[in-house]
Design a protein around this nucleic acid. Structure first.
Lengths: 158, 158
DNA sequence: TATTGTTATACTCTATAACTATA
DNA sequence: TATAGTTATAGAGTATAACAATA
């Protein structure tokens, strides 16, 4: 057969799991997850709590339901995370004028400081993990993952 | 500020989780995992069982421990999976001449047939999921994920 | 001593379902 | 009736620790 796409003949038998994107996504994800566990998570912040805090800092006064939708997770799972963040003084629940059902989430000064520090730490770790790829490849990888995600909708189907 | 890497200014505030590779890897992985659940897994094959079967087909007479090492999972978790595959007539345990501790794993004719069918099915689904990326991008994505994985070692650190 | 397969166990993550108070 | 937050519960997925047989 003729010249197919280069990556297909890279290394592994086509028709094996090594040629499946899903499998390779999982393995790559595991590399990053494990590293996270050995660094940031030991400092008492789970990946989820981090993404939640980041979301709140990015959009102050966002409601819990909206955070859940944006991150593609369940509302119910958020409660404990917000509790924890609030207990740590990083976030507080505030009343929403005009809708007494909702709780708006506001980052504290400490929350701002904390997410900045964590993001820096994670970025440093990621730079390390990504060092096998050159800068162009790193940018491409990020670009394509984002493109995939946005093409499939930011929030999970309810 | 000057022109940085294109992907960095794509869409989201740099310094948010949307610019983290780990986060985007997870979200992309979730897209593929969810699709798998709604298709192949409903036909009675988990992602793990599939990767194990594929591995055995690719390397007949591989031992359980070696499968575990290659897939980056624990030996203990393999037992139930092999039991299941064996019960389904896709694989059988065989004695290893010269080492009575090991169990070599051999695919049956049915096992061959099954993994071929499943791989085809998964590839079709992946082609669909990947359609937002052009063929070159798809190849690049696969290439970089593989590169990452192999750079960080094929097996998880014990 | 180290390794293989195995079992039993525990833990993490996350989803589901049901409730309440609002709208 | 639908939505927000909450609670309790259950399930998947996976790791850890220990054990017997064998090297």
């Amino acid at each position: 057969m003729g010249k197919v796409l280069k990556a297909d003949t890279d290394n592994a038998a086509a028709g094996s799991i090594d040629s499946l994107l899903g499998y390779n996504l999982k393995r790559a994800y595991m590399i990053f997850r494990d590293d996270f566990r050995n660094s940031v998570e030991n400092a008492g912040m789970t990946p989820r709590a981090m993404s939640v805090l980041a979301q709140i800092v990015e959009m102050p006064m966002i409601t819990q339901s909206d955070v859940a939708r944006r991150l593609g997770i369940e509302r119910s799972g958020l409660v404990a995370i917000i509790d924890e963040l609030e207990k740590g003084g990083l976030v507080r629940r505030a009343a929403v004028p005009g809708d007494r059902r909702s709780q708006a989430l506001v980052p504290t000064a400490q929350g701002h400081k904390r997410i900045r520090a964590i993001l820096q730490q994670v970025q440093a770790h990621e730079a390390n993990l990504l060092s096998p790829l050159n800068p162009q490849e790193q940018a491409q990888l990020l670009h394509m993952l984002r493109k995939l995600r946005h093409a499939h909708g930011n929030d999970s189907t309810p």
